[in-house]
Design a protein around this nucleic acid. Structure first.
Lengths: 119, 119
DNA sequence: CATCAATATTGACAGCCGTCGATTCCGGGG
DNA sequence: CCCCGGAATCGACGGCTGTCAATATTGATG
């Protein structure tokens, strides 16, 4: 029932930042598949806004009720947050009536390093 | 006919790196829409591999013939490269029979800064 | 000009995806 | 125990998207 925990992507990607910068060597097929899931998760305007709202919120964490006003219905917001969670970009935690989402800094930093200014 | 030049996204995003780091403040709707196009472009495994192959190629530039072997048909490769171009992530240039793609470093660096290690 | 090699475009099609309304699940109070 | 509010799930639907085969375009070369 309560599958608040998700996929192995997080374990793999978070623990091992995954890959060398894109400018250094081509991605392997498996790496490309795992990373594409994350980029795809950020590839929707609403989801990107939700992610930025969580990331910029006090302590890098926000209650759903704080970020719900993005112009789509409540089920859609929930759907998008689930996608972000499945991609390993955020985690969720229930506290009483509310559910709080927070960013996974290692993963986003890893993505940044992938694109980042090379040497 | 020859619309090798594309959308204003590049002009806007490349010239002005766009936004503060995601962890600092929420994206505006227009910013989110423009950025989502780029993330979406990287959100396909084949496209991500193509991008990494271009980025890691000698001089950050590659002939289509050099990166064509990604397991999909030639038209599909062409289609994906067009998407990357439309997203402002790469530019293309014809030299004789061949077409060369190169990354737009300012844009990718801008994306990296967006996700980057915050203060 | 005819032909060939390298890319791009077109048209078609199946599957995915964002969206919603309705419903369900989960905790907290009366 | 019942009800209420916050959030997730379900089912449906239209539009987008990745893919291919076929064809067109473009430039080099004989």
């Amino acid at each position: 029932m309560s599958n608040l925990r998700e996929l192995p992507i997080l374990e793999t990607a978070a623990t091992a930042p995954c890959c060398a910068p894109l400018a250094r060597e081509p991605l392997t097929v498996p790496d490309a598949e795992r990373l594409a899931v994350m980029f795809k998760a950020l590839g929707d305007p609403v989801r990107l806004r939700l992610f930025s709202m969580v990331a910029s919120h006090e302590g890098g964490e926000a209650c759903v009720c704080d970020i719900q006003d993005v112009g789509v219905s409540q089920p859609t917001v929930s759907h998008h947050l689930k996608k972000l969670r499945e991609a390993g970009l955020v985690t969720s935690e229930r506290r009483g009536t509310w559910v709080f989402y927070k960013v996974v800094p290692e993963v986003t930093a890893s993505l940044a390093g992938l694109l980042g200014q090379e040497g």
